[in-house]
């Protein structure tokens, strides 16, 4: 089904990487994506606004990195209304836990690069309740070699088991730091198959799940205020309004 299209919600495009937004869009489009979220780290202060280029969507986002779990909620609240996708870069178990317990967080990434797996059944339950998606970081499988890739695959396998058991929303991302790190959706799916993910699950992780995350953070067409919404009778007026947004 081509309707929701393929999304990658964790792409970085900082000035330091030497890439322009145009290059990233050109490559992502060539690879078959219909939208990417540019999630630059919060300390770079480079937030790219949401935009749409004839059918290709750029979704504004931020990747929050902090070592202090108690500060995380404050930072999330700061960005929640400014961007469409709030991504938390995990690490220690306390950060991961704070992230999955906060419904304002959309996606938790980078939590299994460490030697021990930072995800367990307690976090899985919390993530499922708060609908915080966890990301399978396939960039690790692409870039690592040898023992560390074995470790990453093992962690992904374990996490997949928890995801299935507790019905945690998940996303497959290439964690691109530049356009060289992007991979086509089909290739991402076959990398996910290496740790036992079925083709249907992989497609859901690339299409419907990221799409639902993006939609829930965007006000509906004709939104005025909490509980107040313009309802159009004909489709023309609705589409005009979309362009204004």
């Amino acid at each position: 089904m081509a309707d929701p299209g393929y999304y990658d919600l964790n792409v970085r495009c900082t000035q330091e990487s030497g890439n322009t937004i145009g290059e990233i869009i050109a490559v992502a489009r060539r690879l078959g994506y219909s939208g990417i979220a540019i999630t630059n780290p919060d300390n770079t202060k480079q937030i790219v606004p949401s935009a749409s280029f004839d059918g290709f969507e750029i979704i504004s986002g931020v990747e929050i990195r902090t070592d202090n779990a108690s500060k995380l909620h404050g930072i999330v609240n700061k960005y929640r209304d400014r961007v469409d996708i709030v991504v938390v870069s995990g690490g220690s178990e306390s950060i991961n836990r704070a992230a999955v317990e906060n419904p304002g967080v959309d996606l938790l990434v980078n939590f299994n690069i460490a030697q021990e797996n930072g995800f367990n059944q307690v976090l899985a339950k919390a993530a499922s309740e708060n609908r915080v998606a966890i990301s399978f970081d396939l960039g690790d499988l692409i870039h690592l070699r040898g023992g560390s890739r074995v470790q990453a695959l093992t962690n992904c396998r374990k996490n997949l088991q928890l995801v299935r058991k507790y019905d945690v929303p998940f996303h497959l991302s290439s964690n691109a730091r530049s356009w060289f790190d992007l991979r086509a959706p089909r290739e991402i799916a076959s990398l996910a198959a290496l740790f036992g993910m079925s083709a249907e699950e992989a497609v859901a992780g690339l299409t419907t799940i990221p799409h639902s995350i993006v939609i829930r953070n965007r006000p509906p067409v004709g939104y005025i205020n909490e509980g107040v919404q313009l309802v159009y009778k004909d489709a023309d007026a609705g589409s005009m309004n979309e362009e204004d947004c």
Binding site: L31, I142, A184, S190
Partner: peptide, 23 residues
């Protein structure tokens, strides 16, 4: 074909030139 796609995806550079191999 699935495994070969994964193999192609995990190629990051060819003799120092960064590449994406797109099926």
């Amino acid at each position: 074909t699935g495994n070969v796609r994964a193999v192609l995806a995990s190629i990051t550079e060819v003799k120092g030139t960064k590449v994406i191999i797109h099926v």
